[in-house]
Structures are given as structure tokens and as C-alpha cells.
Amino acid sequence: MQFSDLELDDALCRAAAEIGFSTPTSIQQQAIPVAMEQRDILASAPTGTGKTAAFLLPACQYLLDFPRKIPGQTRVLVLSPTRELALQIFEQAQKITQFTDLHCGCITGGINYGTDRETLAGNLDILIATPGRLFEHIQNEVADCRDIECLILDEADRMLDMGFSAIVNQIASEARWRKQTMLFSATLEGKGVRTFAEEILQEPAEIEAVPSRKEKAKTLQWCHHADDLKHKTALLVHILQEQVTNAVVFVKTRERVQWLKDTLQSKGIESCWLQGEMPQDKRNQALSTFKSGKVKILVATDVAARGIDVPNVSHVINFDMPKKADTYVHRIGRTGRAGAKGVAISLVEAHDVEVLGKVSRYIGEPIKPRMIASLRPKHKAPKIVKKKKKKKTKK
């Protein structure tokens, strides 16, 4: 199948070719025709399988089919949970609309309010925004949602995790005259996303895309057992010096980011860093430096686990294991994107072994240990003792 087979405008097909999209992915093949029927959509697809284009292309097609007669405010609103993801969606929206007269804008936290006002005051077809900042502008009567015809929620499960459900519901209420709502999530498991969808969507078409073998991430996964923090740091330094082209290294706290950055620098390894509550200009600069290849190592907290689309990341390294198994999946999704090969390595101390077991069960495959000859652990990894369920006794 080609993009032209999806009845997309020539300008959009040309843009897709310019971006480097050869053929539609499974989520694009399933979502685009349904979206062009103006039905509400509840969709899930693994990270790195073209989800962004799956909602931007039909939204742009609608705007081209039904051009506005007079200048006005936002017609298509895309809500994103994080600043970085919002900026990436904005960049892709600009590329997709490059051969059209459609106008795109982006507002996120950390940006000057005056810049936001200029964006919102313009003739705007597509707006990508983070929920918190947009709602501030709605409350201050700077943003008007009455012209919104299509509302798109990207990474809905992440929005719920970050506590945005109430704000998103209020924004949806402000855009109550819309004709279509699309909700995209990495997973539809659990009651959270389902309940969220029931509140916002009207008789949605449900799409769960199973990526082809070509689209699936080819990510090798293994772990190294570490005796303590000193041993774990030595393992990381060895891996970064000997095995890695470029890598995202995940840690658990902001304090750990600074400590690890300084530690790597003392070993002659340059890195940039990304964390929460970081000025937006510095966040953008860190990502730009990493994407350009000037610096090969990005140290980050889980703020970067979702949506950071950096081509050809060779390794993801869990210096600290995440608390939840699904966070692990989102972390390693930064490598092996769009069918490329990648490597995910976890550095596991004794207290992480239980989490490692949870992750293995969640992904349905074991994460096998490997050893570096010069850095063998002195102690054996503890075995996980499964707790037996107590039998209920009849009174």
C-alpha cells in the first residue's frame, strides 16, 4: 500500500515522501481511513510505529477538504503530556504541511507567555499544546476553543499518569462543539484509559495495531548484575567507552542526574542531561546537542522516557531500574525505532532483582544476565522467592 492509496491529497503524499515515509505503517493503514470518515478513534500502537503521522495526516486532509472561509483560531488541537513530545509533534506537523497553506503552532510550559499570545492570536489551523499551559490561557481568556473541530489526545496513558485527566476533561468541555476526537495510547490495558475514553469519545472505532515484523523494534535486551553503586558505575563507564555509538542513560532522580553527569565527566565521558523542572531553553538545547551528535550520551530521568524521537539511538541503559514495568518498556522504546536495531542494558543491584522479575513477566521474555570478564560481580544475584498465596479458609 502507498500513501496515495489512502486518498490523501497530493501535497500530503509529497510531504510524506520528503520526510522519508515510503509506505504506511500498520497503525497508519488502519487509523487514517477511519479518521477520514470523521469517526472518533480509540487507538493503541507501540512506540516508534508512526503514530504521530496516523493522526496528523487525516487531520490535515480534513482541513484541506474543508478550508476555513475567514481567519480564526485553532481548528485542530493536539494535546501532548510533555513539552518534548509536543515540540516533536509540532516539528512533524510542519513537515507534513510544508506544501500546503496550513498554519501550525505550539505552546508549552517554560515558554514566554508573550510568545504564546502571538501564536494564539494568529490564523491557526493546528495547535499542539501541553494541557497545563493551554488551560492557563483558557482561564485567562487568551485561548478560545470554540473553533476546534478535531481534538487529538496523544499518549493518553501518560497524561493519566501525570494527573492531567481533570484538565483534559475541562479542555474537552471547552471544545464541546468539535466534530471528532481521537485518543492514542501506547496501551489500552487497565481501567484508566478506558474510563477516560468513555468520558471523551462518542462511539469510537477501536484500533489496536499489531506492527509488522519490519516495523517491530529489534531490541536486544540483557542485564549486568552489580555488587554496589561503585561496581555499577564501573560497568557503565566500560559499556559507554567500549560498546556504545550513542546512548540514553536513565536514572531515578534529578539528584542522580547531576551526580552521574559529574562522575562521567571525571572519567573523560562528556554527556548532556535532561530532567524535570528544567528551563525549556536548556531542555531544548540538551536535546538538540544530543540529536546533532555533538554529544553521544544523554543522562535523563523518566521525563525523557516518552516520545523522545532521536534517530539511531544505539543503546538505552537503565543505570537505575524503574519502579514500574511499563516504564521500562517506554524507556527502551527510545532505541530500536521503526524497525532499526537497538540494545537495552539494565544494571541491576540486589534490590533491583525483584523489579527485573516483574519486567520479564510484563514483556513475556527473560532478561538474561551477561558478564564483562574484568568486572565480574563478587556476589551471586539473589533469587526471587515467590510469595505463596494464602488459601481462604471457610468460617
Rank of each mutant, 00 (worst) to 15 (best):
I372S: 07
M162N: 11
H315T: 12
V353P: 04
V193Y: 01
G268S: 07
K391H: 13
F21Q: 08
S292T: 00
R306A: 12
P46D: 01
S80E: 02
L85R: 05
V355P: 06
E91S: 09
P46Q: 11
K378A: 12
V355H: 14
L57K: 07
Q241F: 02
T233E: 14
K282G: 10
D309F: 07
G190S: 06
I367A: 11
P204C: 10
F184S: 06
R178N: 11
R194F: 03
T181P: 15
N112R: 11
G268V: 02
S185Y: 07
K282E: 15
I308F: 02
E208F: 13
I297R: 15
T245R: 10
E118N: 15
T253L: 04
A217K: 14
P58E: 07
D262C: 01
T195K: 15
Y113T: 02
K341N: 14
S173I: 03
P377T: 06
H351D: 11
G20F: 02
F21N: 07
L79S: 08
I317Q: 08
E349H: 06
R376M: 00
I148C: 09
P33R: 06
P204Y: 05
P71D: 01
L134D: 03
I317F: 06
V210C: 15
L220D: 12
T100L: 02
A156H: 12
E270K: 08
E242S: 13
V295T: 03
